[in-house]
């Protein structure tokens, strides 16, 4: 098993929670893992990304080679496209369609969505809308994780267990909301794959 994943978004959107959840499941399954994160200045409303590498064999580089990523998982539509040079030819892109606009020159959203949909393997999902519908506005990141789940080669049960581990300290309600968000994203992907 080998999965090289780019997680993308804007500082503060919660990509590290996605990384932590996948990472927890991977460690539980005794997989090797490396995860490079962005800390410091860029976190302040700038673009952020994380390289998450899982494998049943030892992993050499902390960075995924360009053109070799199996997945781009992005909480923001434009940010998903920033990492296209990383994506392998048969890789998947799972992107939120809800933009985060904090710059004056944000491009035309339709152009962005069109581009995402031109990638042969894509899931375009409005995670914010789905999170809102299920009454958990702050769980858009878990909706995105759910939408990515069918492509991770990790059993759904392992990921759900990881969500319980990660959010357990915040109480059962928080766990339940995040699980609900995760499943909503998962269902979307299964019916739109």
């Amino acid at each position: 098993m080998k999965k090289d994943i780019i997680l993308a978004g804007v500082g503060g959107q919660g990509i590290l929670s996605i990384a932590a959840t996948i990472g927890t499941a991977a460690i539980d399954l005794d997989l090797q893992l490396k995860q490079a994160e962005v800390h410091g200045m860029s976190q302040r409303g700038g673009d952020v990304q994380s390289h998450l590498r899982l494998s049943s064999n030892p992993i050499a580089s902390d960075l995924i080679p360009q053109g070799k990523a199996d997945l781009i998982i992005s909480i923001e539509p434009m940010e998903s496209l920033r990492y296209l040079p990383m994506l392998s030819k048969d890789g998947w892109i799972i992107a939120n369609t809800q933009p985060f606009i904090n710059i004056p020159n944000y491009p035309d959203l339709e152009q962005i969505i069109e581009k995402i949909k031109s990638i042969p393997n894509h899931i375009a999902i409005n995670a914010d809308e789905i999170a809102k519908e299920i009454g958990s506005e702050r769980s858009a990141n878990m909706v995105i994780l759910g939408a990515s789940a069918p492509f991770l080669d990790i059993e759904i049960g392992s990921l759900e267990k990881a969500i319980q581990t990660i959010f357990g300290s915040k109480g059962e309600d928080v766990v339940a909301l995040n699980l609900k968000a995760f499943r909503a994203g998962l269902n979307f992907s299964l019916s739109n794959k």
Binding site: R44, R82, L84, P85, L87, N102
Partner: peptide
């Protein structure tokens, strides 16, 4: 092995 280029319309998002 670099993949597809970043589309031209993707704007920079500096920290703020």
């Amino acid at each position: 092995t670099k993949g597809e280029n970043i589309p031209d319309f993707v704007a920079g998002r500096p920290p703020s």
